[in-house]
Design a protein around this nucleic acid. Sequence first.
DNA 1: GTGAAAGCGCTAACAG
DNA 2: CTGTTAGCGCTTTCAC
Lengths: 335, 335
Amino acid sequence: MSNMNDVAKEAGVSRGTVSNYLNNRPVRSDSKASIERAIAKLNYVRNTAARDLRASKSTFVVLIIPTVWTPFFAELTYWIQKNLEGQGYKMILCISNSEFDHEREYVTMAEEQRVAGIITISYSDLTQHVDAEMPLVAIEKEKTGLFPLVTSDNYAGGQLAAEAFRERDVTQYICLGFDLDSMGAMLSRQTGFTDFCNEQHLSNKVYELPSSKQGRDVLKRAMMATLQEIITDFSDQKIGIFAISDAYAKMALTLLQEMKIDVPNKVQIIGFDGGKSSQNALPELSSIRQPVELIAQTATDNLNQQIRGEGKRHPVSRDILPVSFTEGMTTVKTK
Amino acid sequence: MSNMNDVAKEAGVSRGTVSNYLNNRPVRSDSKASIERAIAKLNYVRNTAARDLRASKSTFVVLIIPTVWTPFFAELTYWIQKNLEGQGYKMILCISNSEFDHEREYVTMAEEQRVAGIITISYSDLTQHVDAEMPLVAIEKEKTGLFPLVTSDNYAGGQLAAEAFRERDVTQYICLGFDLDSMGAMLSRQTGFTDFCNEQHLSNKVYELPSSKQGRDVLKRAMMATLQEIITDFSDQKIGIFAISDAYAKMALTLLQEMKIDVPNKVQIIGFDGGKSSQNALPELSSIRQPVELIAQTATDNLNQQIRGEGKRHPVSRDILPVSFTEGMTTVKTK
DNA sequence: GTGAAAGCGCTAACAG
DNA sequence: CTGTTAGCGCTTTCAC
């Protein structure tokens, strides 16, 4: 593979001139012509790795994400990639499975590679292990306070769900879910929901389910038992189930349909997570939708500013983005 | 950020010795000790970008994929990432939306970055624009014959679906779908299905739907109309619908349920695509499952061999991987 | 074993 | 405008 020296020689000019040409700096038109000829002849393509080394900069950003299999993370990955690309970065995708050791290895890799920055979605205190000089933004959780955080307003989302149920004449409020992986966020959702219920004196109850890590069958069985309990205990009520994630919501819906329960007239369901891909799948769940695109944009913008040296630290930013309620087929229409 | 010179100076040895130490080459134990002290003191981390430039190699692989939002692509992305990581590569994720210009830009980027190799899932003839020296493997489609191809056996998948229906006493065979994006693969599925039916003298009919690019509502309406037509035309038959993708299958299922059609007793459905995440979502579709993990592994192994210079070109390999039928809730159980 | 020197491919500073 | 030079941070001979 030919390099700048070959081009310079072939064109009969010096390497510096070729460099100038490639970087759109003024070059006499005859040298320009011969350089172009040489490039075409030799099939030259510039080596950006060398360029970046020389400039001591990098155009890589590392994204560390638990998984890419769920709608929310898939969509988030998509938008982050698109934004970074728009800003001139290339994205190195690192899938952690939420394993701490794995996450740490990725951080090491990022530092060894001298990447421009890191975006993490980690539920452990990963950021403690990151050099303070490294531009980084955390999504969903960041406890150390050392790095900027972007998250959606999980608490408000819980409230919103409860409020939506109240407008739909629900008499028994249920919160369903639990997930160790992202405890903080999940807990906020739950608290938002129950706080609203309690403030408004609405009868509510929380049911915890096993972590999805224990396998689908365990979860499914537990969910089934829970639903049956709910149905019999509150047989004379209009039930509203707020599931802590769309995955739970969808599973609950399917099981209720198998049980021949009338959704949404007897039981209404609201999920949490969103992202268009879960929306696309029929039947459409009513759900609290996170502003995925906005999360991605906020995160990438912030990161870009850090890289550019425009600070954005001190005080470290905490962006809490608004969620919204999207009406699907699992809640009744309000007049 | 400190470099090897700083470490050498601090440790009172030469740069070469530090390099030897870092690469596990024999070093006298007292220099070793002082180097370690220096590294710790200066917080030194090696710069792999510089290392790779010097060695004229790269540890990056580019993955160009249409999207990451569907179960199949999400799972594929996951496994490719994991395999590449296991082989010591970092993966640059490029999401093309199946846009040709976009794909080409990614290829240029890859060549400028001097990446070790490229994995593409492209439905245009992208590979014509790739330097023949660049290690590359195509997934699903590669027409030029210049680069290795890994794909699942779409034709056999169609046959398999028809065969499954026959075992389940279906009397009217329907093939549902159409997608410009991945025409080749989709067509093979359809042909496999209809060929089997025709060979076995089974009454069959193909319905084409608008591309999903035209939006969900258009598709949904068309699907609804088609299903109604099918139901009335074949009201006295046991119908088997083979949908060309799980997305179509799921949509068909939902609509049929809305229409109060008995699935699977009146109408049975088999989808195509697979990947555990679509399996995870209840209700479970009966489906032709692609060996996603195997596709990923075959592709990454092949790429790795190319990079290592073990050829694997001439003749260029064509790996056609076996699909399988997975029983879900949308077909009747056989005795 | 270790130091000195050359060089991966490029950019930037500076004379001319 | 262009050639020369130095050097990004590392590895790799090759003497000693």
